[in-house]
Design a protein around this nucleic acid. Structure first.
Lengths: 212, 212
DNA sequence: TTTGTTCCATACTGTAGCGTATGTTATTAA
DNA sequence: TTAATAACATACGCTACAGTATGGAACAAA
């Protein structure tokens, strides 16, 4: 299988308790982060439309009286969760891609990172389809344009003209986005290409500037 | 802009009346097809989750008493609409792609067709994200695997090994899927690459077997 | 003209979820 | 110990929508 079968909320909550040691010592109370992480989990697997306050509260073992203490309303929760997602994602990109010296290495790192299973990817893929929500569309556009810019710059640094780099970055990013959806859609049906590392290498090779 | 700004239901209904001549002579009654087309319009722009009986009825100028005459329930409507979408789409592929003689021509035709604005593409892109609905996932998986198979076969016919053809078709199809989402997400922000024909040629060139 | 069928309107029940108001407990500060 | 505040629970009203039940109009066939 491509992406790990991310555990549901149940396991996630156990993870929360885990922060407090093995002794199953319950957390005294929830904080906004708990709600945001649970929200991202729902978004990743069921979309923004499936984010509902009461079911979330149930999953977290509380009632919505708790929710409306931490957030003003449903939209506030979603926006906060997306902000958290974006920040975490940017931090990862910073660490894994911008740490590379050459443009070629950055491109390669990008392709490899794209193929790694992570909740962040799942969230992004879902958001791409939930852009009818205004606040989602905004975040999505910004993130996408930003990443496209990074790719374009890397391609330019390898010697491509601005125009060529634009087209090539769009192509490369399309591969990434398309792959996300393919993996979700076929989920386990990819068989031969199931060697994801192998496929990532293949794609990287195809999209590297030396092929131009 | 990439995709035509598909008119909402209002214009669609005028289109329906149009079938009956300019004289604004109202259709006497609705048939299942009317409901299915309206449903596909909603799916294309707002997703499967946004398909609601009463709003649809309002948009079509009737009440849900009419709806439950033609369909047994909401799910029945969605499944019927998806069947219609799939049939129409397959007919188009038959006409535009399988009519080509050589494998190279079929691949080229595929890339060109992928870049054309159509509601069918919008629907597909939306479904890719709404696969949490069971019936959607089924149709989606079938359609995707089918198209992947076509691409793979074409690549094999051009001389690629089965393994290479598999990887290459997955790459090519990812480009298509990714592009759909990019176009929706950025919608108008693609500027320089806005010359879609140009970009399609570029992509086709990159993904043609002679590059391997 | 009568009768049957098609197509739709109206009125109802039932549920899920949002948001609010307010009561309750546990923790902390003084 | 007391008072305040954080973090909930409970109960409520409200809306959107699914689905059902039934009545009515329009048209066709007899």
């Amino acid at each position: 299988m491509f992406f790990v079968d991310l555990a549901g909320l149940g396991a996630m909550i156990k993870g929360l308790n885990h922060e407090w040691g093995m002794k199953n010592q319950k957390k005294k109370s929830l904080n906004p982060e708990d709600w945001e992480l649970a929200t991202l989990d729902v978004i990743a697997h069921q979309g923004v439309g499936a984010v509902a306050v009461e079911p979330l509260a149930k999953a977290l073992g509380v009632t919505k009286g708790s929710f409306y203490w931490h957030f003003s309303n449903r939209q506030d929760l979603i926006e906060s969760a997306l902000q958290r997602w974006r920040a975490d994602d940017q931090a990862l990109i910073e660490e894994r891609i911008f740490s590379q010296d050459s443009a070629e290495a950055r491109l390669k790192a990008w392709f490899m990172l794209s193929a790694e299973p992570s909740q962040s990817h799942l969230v992004y893929a879902t958001l791409l389809a939930d852009r009818q929500h205004g606040f989602v569309a905004k975040v999505l556009k910004e993130v996408t344009l930003e990443r496209l810019g990074h790719l374009q710059q890397a391609y330019q640094e390898t010697g491509l003209s601005e125009a060529d780099a634009k087209q090539q970055s769009l192509l490369a990013y399309s591969v990434y986005v398309g792959y996300l959806h393919m993996a979700k859609t076929l989920h386990g049906k990819l068989k031969d290409s199931d060697n994801i590392q192998n496929y990532a290498e293949y794609v990287a090779n195809q999209l590297m500037p030396h092929k131009l």
